[in-house]
Design a protein around this nucleic acid. Structure first.
Lengths: 206, 206
DNA sequence: CCTCCACACGAACGACTGTTCGTATGCCAA
DNA sequence: TTGGCATACGAACAGTCGTTCGTGTGGAGG
């Protein structure tokens, strides 16, 4: 079945066409890249006029920043819910964190791709804010790995480096995943969880 | 020490300013992205005139294609040398392949970043040719993992998927590596090799 | 000497870019 | 009714884009 979710990243915000513009911007930036997509592309996708975009966002780069912020918020929320609902041991928590991450990639692949590929076009405050938000994601994984290293559940040295490598691999999933692929959403999540636990040298995981 | 190599990706090609143009294009595309960088940027970086670029490359996208082809050629060459010089067992071959890959990332980080981030702006024959070339890289890793799975050196199921995950993680290194980081080139290569072997569930590796 | 070819340049073209301006509509509060 | 505010639009601006054109130079081969 493996159908791609058609749920938009941004739900209604209560401000006229704001959500439509944000989702259209995500589509445009995802399809053509930040500099390859024009504000006219975004307006067309949102079903509104070019000049009306500037009633919501003061510039193109700020529009990108808002798109990325919405994407990261959704990811962080999902991660915290998943980890909170997991057991107390590091293996369980890591497994659930990876599962949640992969499910986000499958549900909002475009958002993930844009997040990793276009973030470098931000500058100034917008960039700093997003870096801080992204560090929060990394901290979730780092803390779990540190816990597992302390308890003996993970035997990998340099927990912080290992956590980053796991995250790097997960982000990579968005680059090659195809909704019509061989594995279902759940199977992919399970497989990635196994890879992560193996990389962390968890003796009991397999 | 960790000094970044200052060796250019493309050596002299025997055709006037060709190498300078290719290297300048790599710098420009890496700094601003394919659509963010202009042909005028490339010309300035190469120390030549805008119109002269078209004596060497018929279009901007073809210029990108040639840059990516040079980068991939260098990577594939290094990989084959490393694997050929390794022992016969899969663990040794994988370790050397990962080491060579990481060393390429360190030596030519910009080329690696551009390869992963800008390849999607190619289309038509240029894109197809690069996909074929990239499959050759993947095949090197897939074959090693398959060998190790058959011999029992690797216990991971679905060798092809595992190989892609390893490669995906290695490509990710280029996104976060900094020459002034804590680890030396050799230490980073060693660490990534350990991660790869652990992910492949190699019982003897650690 | 002459021709050819590789290499180099400045100027220009039409298309497209992000952004601004002036204006209009309709709704809510006073 | 009046005023203000959020939302919406078309037209226009100044700048940049990739690409082409015409021209020029200098060395190699006949």
């Amino acid at each position: 079945m493996n159908a791609r979710s058609t749920v938009s990243l941004v739900g209604d915000t209560g401000r006229g066409n704001e959500a439509a513009i944000l989702n259209a911007a995500l589509e445009a930036f995802g399809a053509k890249g930040f500099h390859g997509a024009s504000m006219r592309d975004v307006a067309r996708g949102a079903g509104t006029s070019l000049s009306n975009l500037y009633n919501y966002f003061p510039s193109k780069s700020r529009l990108l920043a808002e798109v990325l912020r919405h994407a990261n918020d959704e990811l962080v929320t999902r991660l915290h819910v998943a980890v909170d609902e997991a057991g107390d041991d590091a293996v369980s928590r890591m497994r659930e964190a990876v599962r949640a991450y992969v499910r986000f990639v499958v549900d909002h692949q475009l958002a993930m791709v844009v997040s990793t590929n276009e973030v470098r076009y931000l500058d100034g405050e917008d960039r700093e804010r997003l870096v801080v938000d992204r560090d929060a994601t990394q901290a979730v994984f780092e803390q779990i790995v540190a816990q597992g290293a302390a308890s003996g559940e993970f035997r990998t040295p340099h927990p912080a480096d290992a956590a980053r490598t796991v995250l790097s691999g997960l982000a990579g999933v968005a680059q090659w995943y195809r909704p019509d692929g061989r594995l279902s959403r759940g199977q992919l999540a399970e497989q990635q969880a196994r890879y992560a636990l193996a990389l962390l040298e968890s003796p009991l995981a397999h």
